[in-house]
Simulated scan of single mutants.
Amino acid sequence: MSIEPATWADSPALRTVLARAYRDNPLMVWALPDAATREGACAAWLGPSVDRYLAGGRADVARLDGCVVGVAAWRLPDRPAVPGSLPAPDRVLALLVGPARAGEILAALGRAAAFAPKEPAAYLNYLAVAPEHQGRGIGRELLDVGVGQARRDGVGTYLATSDPRNLPFYERAGFSAVGGLDLGGPRLTVLHGP
């Protein structure tokens, strides 16, 4: 297995890994309640974000026998969002669930910004491993690469998770919970890195 920067050619594989890994994530179940269409809806909603990380953030992939089996996508503090690229994630969500429901979901998620570090920090937006490869340390390797790069860049790290099963994983990696909020379904916990 190797960990390396993602390329534009990886975009379809990144969408697939994210959709499959997040299919049963509490946030996705809450935001996209139709189990029959959730995997495709996840790929549609998260795909534009992946493209933005490829254009102006940091995305690392885990490859096994040449195939992408994991991804870590970071929003970097010194890089602005990529303006004008379409489709925009918020608009895709509105197409999937309707404008009113999308507004509710995005407003709830936006409240987590109150728990962001005061100093510059890289935000781990996505850490996902294909389900058949989970439990083998791939996620931890991806996380360690990103945290190490943030340290070399002189910035902190933070993330948010709605899956309580993830908390021990992040705590073992040195992250500490600093706050949380009820999204109206799942609870979102924000953690700051070591």
Rank of each mutant, 00 (worst) to 15 (best):
D90T: 14
V68I: 09
R111W: 08
A102M: 04
G66F: 04
P89V: 08
I105N: 00
A72K: 01
A114Q: 14
S85A: 09
L76K: 01
V68H: 05
F115P: 01
L93N: 03
L96S: 01
D90Q: 13
A108V: 09
L109S: 04
L93V: 07
D90E: 15
G110P: 10
D65I: 05
G110I: 11
R63T: 12
A114D: 12
C67M: 10
G66I: 09
A100Y: 04
L106T: 08
G70I: 02
P89M: 09
V82S: 05
G110F: 12
R63D: 07
A114E: 14
P99A: 15
I105F: 00
A107K: 07
L76P: 00
L106R: 11
D65T: 10
D90W: 03
A73I: 02
L106H: 02
R111Q: 15
L106A: 12
L76Q: 05
L86P: 00
P83W: 09
A113T: 14
L93A: 04
D90A: 15
R91V: 06
A113V: 14
G66H: 08
W74E: 02
P83R: 06
A108Y: 02
V69D: 01
S85L: 11
E104D: 08
R79P: 00
P77H: 09
V82E: 04
A81F: 06
A102I: 06
A108G: 07
P87G: 12
D90H: 14
G84N: 12
C67A: 13
P87A: 09
A102Q: 01
L64I: 11
F115I: 07
A112C: 08
A113S: 14
I105T: 06
A112K: 03
W74K: 01
R63L: 10
S85P: 00
C67P: 00
F115G: 02
A100V: 15
P99Q: 14
R75Q: 09
R79L: 13
R111I: 05
G98L: 13
D90R: 11
L109F: 02
A100G: 05
S85H: 07
R111L: 14
L76G: 00
A113N: 11
A102E: 03
D65W: 07
F115T: 04
D65F: 06
A94T: 05
L96T: 01
P89K: 04
R75E: 10
A102R: 01
A108I: 06
G103Y: 03
V69R: 06
A102H: 01
I105M: 04
I105Y: 00
V71I: 13
A116W: 05
G84D: 13
A81R: 11
L76N: 02
A114L: 10
L106S: 04
A107P: 08
P77Y: 02
C67N: 10
L64V: 12
D65R: 12
R63E: 08
V71L: 12
R91P: 00
A73S: 15
P89Q: 07
A94G: 14
P89C: 08
C67K: 12
P80Y: 00
A81T: 06
P83Q: 05
L96Q: 02
A100Q: 12
P80C: 04
P83L: 06
G84R: 09
R75C: 09
G66D: 10
R75P: 00
A108F: 07
L93H: 01
A88D: 15
V82A: 03
A113G: 06
A81C: 03
G66T: 10
A88K: 11
F115W: 12
P80V: 10
A73E: 11
S85V: 13
R91H: 09
A116S: 13
P77E: 07
R63A: 10
A81E: 14
